[in-house]
Nucleic acid binder design. Structure first.
Lengths: 243, 243
DNA sequence: CAACTTTTGTGAAAATTATCACAAATAGCT
DNA sequence: AGCTATTTGTGATAATTTTCACAAAAGTTG
């Protein structure tokens, strides 16, 4: 049985889809209940809605309660990452196929794809895929599999098999740690097989990281430094001798 | 010359990147000026920032002033679709695997998955996948492939092969047209192979459509009515004789 | 440096939003 | 129906945000 309350939640969600904010006043008028009831509905579904100064907004899109410094810390290297991607973007050439790794770093790369370039972009992260859909001239290939919330990415055999049918010109990889001796490492093991296969198949691979990653060692190793054509940071590109 | 004000605007924009909202208070503390000054900065750049209950938000992301009814118009059958999904949701059982077709209709189904059910959901549409990520107990399996903007979905051989490794208890399919004689049809040909394979593999398949689809015939045929266990609309469920 | 313009800060008043307690209405159950 | 539990509405109060006027500070120009 669908309670009256559940029905309202659904109506609210519907009203909110398509627009980003809905004023409490309008929501109450729309559903024909008091503002207090809407307040309670919203408060009872913190995973779905949030309040922002009298307006209802979809949770997730906006997190008004996240303390500032924390959220900032989460992406304190945003400027560095963006700058690194600016450098990396010089390797994107029209009519080619590129691979974009998961993680926050390379999300900025998507925005930097020139609008008039028609390219094919291969990805396996939901975030990257979504950003790619905003680029009209980009053909998107998604590697499927089981979803991993920690990195918003997918992994699985079928995704790996998809790679076999692709020709990748340039692969942009990111890492959570770059150790001078050991090489590139990441946090999540499931990413390793995808990264390794991409590196083995792509004509050239570039490691794109901000400087804060240099010297760090994370649990999942995926490649020695030598396999990359270059390492790209916010300070520029370091060419590596080809093997 | 960069005026003090311009510099602040840039700082503000930077602070706002990476997070979606910034409280006036924090912005003032961050830039070392009074709240009033921040207010004036924001007010002077309506194209870039907006205010929403004490928070600064990027303009465009949020348009508090957009007339409500306009946005509402977009999906006229939304209520019917949602109601059909309410009926369909009764077929979701805990610990099972379900398939969710692409299209706007079944997006509502995601919200109706009970929070305490841990299920596996198979999908091939970006919209559905994104909604699924909001459900903490749902394991998501995504079929990859090439992206089709018209339906926000993916298709390709690898996605089809992924299906071979899955056991699907219940499949929820949607259609753009349901012709009494010919059967279920959709608009995009690339969806056909996915739908057909899902129907052949799933233990039971249900067709979920709003009544406006009944009697319509669309270019891409994918299944006769008889293959479905039932047809579910906003008016209820019609059982079909099993073959 | 003086006169002028622009920018910034402060505090009070007005408007808006949030919270709470309690009454009224509704639904569920025997 | 009669009882209980839950949901919803109302109005008062508290907290917050917005607006405004004016003073202080900083920047400009001759």
């Amino acid at each position: 049985m669908v309670s009256r309350k559940t029905a309202r939640i659904i109506q609210l969600a519907d009203a909110l889809s398509g627009r980003r904010v809905l004023h409490l006043r309008d929501a109450a008028a729309l559903l024909g209940v008091s503002e207090m009831t809407i307040r309670r509905d919203v408060a009872d579904n913190p995973g779905q809605f949030a309040f922002l100064g009298g307006h209802i907004v979809p949770a997730g899109e906006i997190e008004p309660d996240a303390p500032y410094e924390l959220a900032r810390e989460a992406d304190s290297h945003a400027t560095a990452k963006r700058e690194a991607c600016v450098q990396a973007a010089r390797h994107i050439r029209p009519d080619e196929t590129i691979f974009i790794d998961c993680g926050t770093t390379l999300e900025y790369l998507v925005e930097l794809i020139p609008e008039n370039y028609s390219i094919t972009a291969v990805c396996y992260s939901l975030n990257v895929a979504e950003k790619l859909t905003r680029k009209p001239n980009v053909r998107i290939v998604m590697l499927g599999g089981v979803y991993h919330p920690s990195s918003a990415s997918f992994s699985g055999n079928s995704g790996l098999e998809t790679l076999d049918s692709l020709g990748i010109n340039v692969a942009f990889l990111s890492a959570a740690g770059v150790d001078p001796g050991r090489g590139a490492t990441c946090v999540h093991f499931h990413e390793v097989s995808v990264k390794q296969k991409v590196i083995s198949l792509a004509r050239e691979s570039h490691l794109v990281v901000d400087l804060s990653k240099i010297g760090k060692l994370k649990p999942a190793f995926f490649a020695p430094i030598g396999v990359f054509r270059s390492i790209i940071t916010e300070e520029g590109e370091t060419q590596l001798p080809s093997l």
